[in-house]
Design a protein around this nucleic acid. Structure first.
Lengths: 233, 233
DNA sequence: TTTGATAATTAGGCTAGCCTAATGCCCTGT
DNA sequence: ACAGGGCATTAGGCTAGCCTAATTATCAAA
């Protein structure tokens, strides 16, 4: 008689949401997320991960291959992308509307993403004009659960002489982000690689405006770039 | 050598925050909050309350008189007022800036209040111009932890013939709030009590604009009013 | 003053998540 | 082919919060 009211969608705990996000990020390049990588990312002990993986595969959110690792099921992926959308919309909203610094949004979003309703996220997205990238340049999944996948190279992998656009900063540590902003290294900026020191030494780049920056290996690995001319948005 | 770094202020759990808020609301008229009132308000079983009261008095947030009830210590009161400030600022922000209906803000704020930082609340308060009342007319505690205490009478207690200003709606149920808004019964409106039916019957009021409303006892108890002329803000 | 209703507490158990210690699996290097 | 190292898992324990059932305190009414 009655239409079946969709799937119940079981209402996840904060902890489960965090595990799913971790698995998503760790499997983004394909393959399995390992117990110890998840443990490191969430700062818990490995047995906690084993235990949670067991529960999550029982509820069908992940596929667990013992001693190999885990992958998200379609359902788990949907949940993870929803959390990532929440996180990135929140970051965008905080920077645009409440004057947050891009280094400070991550922690706030990390707590809020577990508490906001779908409705609130969509209101925020709407108020922002449905942004496609967060303040760090990361793509925001759509409400339907699609996410743009682009191949980006790190600045550390960019060859000397190449010109690139800095598209995304793959880091969330306030200190590093503050430093990068001071240096003018924010998404959208155009960079030309002038030189690189040997033995994983720093990369020397020239910005748009002609200024020069010396970027150490550690930071250069966080700066994700696209060659100039391979079309931007 | 080093200055003592203030009190550690122990970082409360969600649950503790909820208990403190309940105790605050239940002791607002003075006196003790009883175990069963707290249990009813939080929808938990009484023994859960007894257990929590024990923990809270050990951490110095409440004063527990066995078989009598509890009261907040100054520290507990501070924490409770902080939560209430968060809640009411959130409600205000959601209605003003994100187009939320006043009936829908409560549930959203109830979840967010446990996740927001002090900083975010102050940014929101600032963006709103430091509002003094939330969308239901309830006073917002200051960041310093002061709250306005005003004597308000319910509409049900207002005598026939009196003119009053509706100051606050003491309810958070979406349905009732939606209904009241439809009827034009929102904070700030001026009402004249035209008549009241006997035996706790409805109160008949005339609004500003001359329209008449019949308000049942249950709702009339939620409408908190101040006599006209006893100065408003 | 005793009694009984009502409310509060204690006793005892459960789950989710975390931990450490002990054990088990897998794979690489000899 | 197998020995070890390293990672994963199991075993067992802890805490916060919740529950129900059993017990105890309080207070008002007979």
């Amino acid at each position: 008689m009655n239409a079946v009211p969709k799937a119940p969608e079981p209402q996840l705990t904060r902890s489960v949401e965090d595990y799913l996000k971790s698995v998503f990020h760790l499997t983004n390049q394909g393959g399995f997320a390992t117990t110890s990588d998840i443990a490191a990312m969430l700062e818990v002990a490995p047995p906690s991960v084993s235990g949670m993986m067991k529960r999550l595969s029982e509820t069908g959110l992940i596929e667990h291959v013992p001693y190999r690792g885990v992958q998200l099921t379609p359902q788990g992926r949907r949940a993870a992308l929803q959390m990532i959308r929440r996180h990135r919309i929140l970051e965008s909203y905080l920077t645009s509307k409440l004057n947050y610094d891009w280094g400070d949004v991550h922690d706030e979003a990390e707590r809020l993403e577990h508490a906001v309703s779908e409705k609130l996220i969509e209101r925020m997205a709407d108020a922002l004009g449905e942004p496609r990238y967060d303040p760090h340049g990361a793509p925001i999944p759509t409400a339907a659960g699609e996410i743009e996948e682009t191949e980006l190279a790190t600045l550390a992998d960019t060859e000397v002489g190449a010109s690139v656009i800095l598209r995304e900063v793959g880091d969330e540590h306030p200190d590093r982000l503050h430093y990068l902003a001071e240096q003018g290294l924010t998404p959208g900026v155009r960079l030309t690689v002038v030189d690189r020191q040997p033995f994983n030494g720093p990369t020397i780049v020239r910005l748009n405006e002609g200024m020069t920056r010396v970027v150490g290996q550690e930071l250069a690995l966080l700066l994700l770039c696209r060659p100039v001319g391979s079309d931007g948005e």
